[in-house]
Write a protein that binds this DNA or RNA. Structure first.
Lengths: 117, 117
DNA sequence: GGTTTATTTAACAAGTATGTTAAATACAAA
DNA sequence: TTTGTATTTAACATACTTGTTAAATAAACC
């Protein structure tokens, strides 16, 4: 029943929506206006506007003010933080690399030159 | 309003809850039973049970069956997939590294030995 | 000033998430 | 077989999310 205010939760929950991830993917190729961002989707403009509000609240995008346009651009900070969080779990899927290394060590054992194949 | 949920959305939404992330952090140190996992939290056991159900549905944990216990263990697959998704954004925060390299190149320019400081 | 274009806010509906307590299930131990 | 321990399911309350349409705001254009 907590309002879920920690930044990582906010980031993850913002990213959990496929529409918002698609918006980020678009912004990865450069800044865009709300209408441009909305164009590929079958949802209303207010709905897109709200997605942008969520992304901005999470710090994943920032917005400018040019005439009547509010261009959005990607902000990578929260993604970097997420990457940092993920890093502590990385060893769990890099385990297979260890197995591969152990395997290679086995098949090259007894080879004085240490060639791997 | 879409019923089908893509795996990445499922992963992110499972991770968006701080209680569930704490559970994963605990499981990163080894398998645990539901009661063990519930112990640090101020929420009811059924609530924890439901968090585990969410994590399992997302493939982030798997469960055994030993006597009356259902031990949980971490499954890294979805985290690895998330890491793969994140990777395509990595260049956005590695840009500062490029700047650092450019900076270092500047201050070492004209130093025949190429020492960095 | 009045219109057009871009975007947001308001008001509302439907679905989902998370928590609770009480009861049910599964297995072990006595 | 009864009892205790571990865990889940049921039933319910509350709040959040996401979508809609209609109206409001902001700035450019004529």
């Amino acid at each position: 029943m907590q309002p879920a205010v920690d930044p990582l939760s906010t980031t993850l929950s913002a990213l959990a929506d496929p529409t918002r991830r698609a918006i980020l993917a678009r912004l990865a190729r450069g800044a865009a206006t709300v209408n441009e961002l909305a164009e590929p989707f079958d949802i209303s403009l207010p709905a897109v506007s709200r997605h942008l509000k969520v992304l901005q609240a999470a710090g994943l995008i920032s917005r400018g003010r040019e005439a009547q346009w509010r261009p959005c651009r990607l902000e990578a900070g929260p993604l970097k933080d997420l990457d940092g969080w993920l890093a502590s779990y990385r060893r769990f899927w890099e385990g297979s690399f260890d197995k591969m290394e152990a395997y290679l060590a086995t098949i090259t054992k007894g080879d004085p030159d240490g060639r791997e194949n």
